[in-house]
Deep mutational scan, measured.
Amino acid sequence: KKRTSIEVSVKGALESHFLKCPKPSAQEITSLADSLQLEKEVVRVWFCNRRQKEKR
């Protein structure tokens, strides 16, 4: 599967949402994915990776 490159504006939106809620529910992920026109899986993986980055 190809890597999904996420645009800067979209990254900003994800980042601000992450600061409010680092662990969104499935429903939040779905609505966020719909509003940003991304697949749910892409958003879910982005949050997983972002939480891991926070640990480092």
Rank of each mutant, 00 (worst) to 15 (best):
K11G: 09
C21P: 00
D34P: 03
K1N: 12
N49S: 09
L14H: 03
E39R: 05
F18E: 00
E41I: 01
F47T: 00
P24C: 03
E54H: 05
L38P: 00
A26D: 15
W46N: 01
V43G: 01
E41F: 03
L32Q: 02
T4E: 15
D34S: 11
L32E: 01
T30H: 07
K11T: 12
K40G: 10
C21E: 11
T4F: 15
S31G: 12
N49K: 11
K1P: 03
P22E: 07
K2I: 07
Q37P: 01
T30Y: 06
S35R: 14
K2H: 06
Q27I: 09
A13M: 13
Q27W: 06
N49H: 10
C48L: 11
L32W: 01
I6H: 07
S16I: 05
R56L: 15
K55L: 10
V43H: 01
W46C: 02
E39K: 09
V43R: 00
N49W: 08
L38E: 03
W46V: 01
C48F: 14
E7G: 14
V42Q: 09
C48N: 08
R44N: 09
E7I: 10
N49R: 09
E54S: 04
P22Q: 15
A26Y: 07
K11P: 06
V45H: 14
K53I: 11
E15T: 02
P22K: 05
K53T: 13
L32F: 05
E41S: 07
K20A: 06
H17L: 06
L32K: 01
L19K: 08
L19M: 13
N49D: 15
L36D: 02
L36W: 04
L14P: 02
S5R: 10
T30W: 06
A33E: 04
S16T: 12
R50T: 02
S31T: 13
E15Q: 04
E7Q: 09
L14C: 02
S35A: 10
I6R: 10
R51Y: 15
Q52G: 10
A33N: 00
S25T: 13
K2G: 10
V43Y: 00
P22M: 05
Q37L: 07
F18G: 00
K11E: 13
R56T: 14
S25Y: 02
P24S: 00
N49G: 07
S16W: 05
C21L: 03
E28C: 06
K20Q: 04
W46P: 00
E41K: 04
N49T: 07
K55H: 06
E39L: 02
S35D: 14
E39W: 00
C48V: 12
E54N: 05
S9M: 12
I29S: 01
K1Y: 05
I29E: 03
G12A: 15
I29P: 02
K53D: 07
S31M: 13
P24G: 03
F18C: 01
V8Y: 15
V8Q: 14
D34R: 15
A13V: 14
K23T: 14
I6V: 09
R50A: 05
K2P: 04
D34F: 13
K55C: 06
K1A: 07
K2A: 08
Q27L: 08
S9V: 09
K53S: 15
L32I: 08
K1Q: 06
R56I: 04
A13R: 14
V43A: 03
V8G: 14
K55A: 15
I29V: 08
S5K: 15
D34I: 15
A33I: 00
K23R: 11
S35V: 09
V42F: 11
R44W: 05
W46E: 00
V43D: 00
K53M: 15
R3A: 08
R50G: 03
R50I: 02
D34K: 15
F47L: 03
F18A: 01
K40D: 05
C48H: 10
R3I: 14
K23C: 13
I29M: 10
E54K: 04
G12E: 14
S35K: 15
I6W: 06
S9I: 08
V10N: 06
V8N: 15
S35N: 09
R51I: 05
K20G: 04
I29K: 00
D34L: 15
L14V: 03
F47S: 01
S16Q: 14
Q37M: 09
T4D: 13
S35G: 12
K2V: 09
R56N: 13
T30Q: 14
S9L: 09
P22R: 05
L14R: 02
S5N: 13
T4K: 06
E28W: 04
L32D: 00
E39D: 14
R44A: 12
S35E: 13
V10L: 09
V45T: 12
R44E: 13
H17C: 06
V8C: 06
V43T: 02
P24I: 01
V8K: 12
T30A: 11
T30D: 14
G12F: 10
E54C: 06
V45F: 08
V10W: 08
K55V: 10
R51A: 09
T30I: 07
P24V: 02
F47Y: 06
K23N: 15
E28A: 07
S9R: 15
S5T: 15
S31N: 13
S31A: 11
A26H: 11
S31I: 14
T30F: 05
R51E: 08
K2M: 11
S35M: 10
H17V: 06
K11N: 09
Q52L: 09
F47N: 00
A33W: 03
A33G: 02
E39A: 07
C21G: 04
H17G: 03
W46T: 00
V42H: 14
K55S: 13
V45W: 11
V10F: 03
K23E: 14
A13K: 14
S25Q: 06
D34H: 15
R3T: 12
V43K: 01
Q27E: 08
S9A: 12
V43E: 00
V10D: 15
L38T: 07
F47R: 00
C48W: 12
R56V: 12
A26M: 13
K40C: 09
R56A: 06
